[in-house]
């Protein structure tokens, strides 16, 4: 079932946990083996606060939330600035919350205004997703 989205709708926030093991699986699946996502010493040496999640991992969680909210609608635009790192501790993990509203619906395209936080801090700047609303008209 695909819900029809209308401007002003609130999208139920989704909470995801990122663990170090997830980052290892993601490195293998994406090919991005940058050690700042695995190795505390390397991360600290380049001035980071610790092992950080791939920015693309966080953006993938946005894609996941969008798929869940829209019933797998076709994504035509997706992106963000990685403004604040998501530090992933060795024990447990980091929580990322993806929330938002429907900003506009026009010509069958739904633009979502999003807010993505970890530990109460915004981690993405200007996160934006546009999806095609199946059978939908403005």
């Amino acid at each position: 079932m695909t819900a029809i989205l209308a401007a002003g709708d609130t999208l139920e926030p989704r909470t995801f946990t990122i663990t170090r093991a997830d980052l290892v699986a993601y490195a293998d699946a994406s090919g991005d083996h940058n050690p700042i996502h695995q190795d505390e010493e390397v991360a600290l040496a380049v001035g980071l606060p610790g092992v950080i999640a791939h920015g693309m991992y966080t953006l993938a969680l946005v894609g996941r939330a969008v798929a869940e909210w829209t019933g797998g609608a076709e994504v035509v635009d997706l992106g963000a600035k990685f403004t604040s790192p998501v530090v992933v501790p060795a024990d447990g993990g980091a929580e990322v919350v993806v929330g938002g509203t429907v900003k506009s619906v026009a010509d069958g395209l739904v633009t979502l205004a999003l807010e993505v936080t970890s530990g109460g801090t915004k981690v993405l700047g200007m996160p934006r997703a546009v999806v095609r609303q199946a059978g939908g008209r403005a």
Partner: peptide, 8 residues
């Protein structure tokens, strides 16, 4: 470090 990514 990845600063920004957008896909169209």
């Amino acid at each position: 470090v990845h600063g920004e990514q957008r896909f169209a």
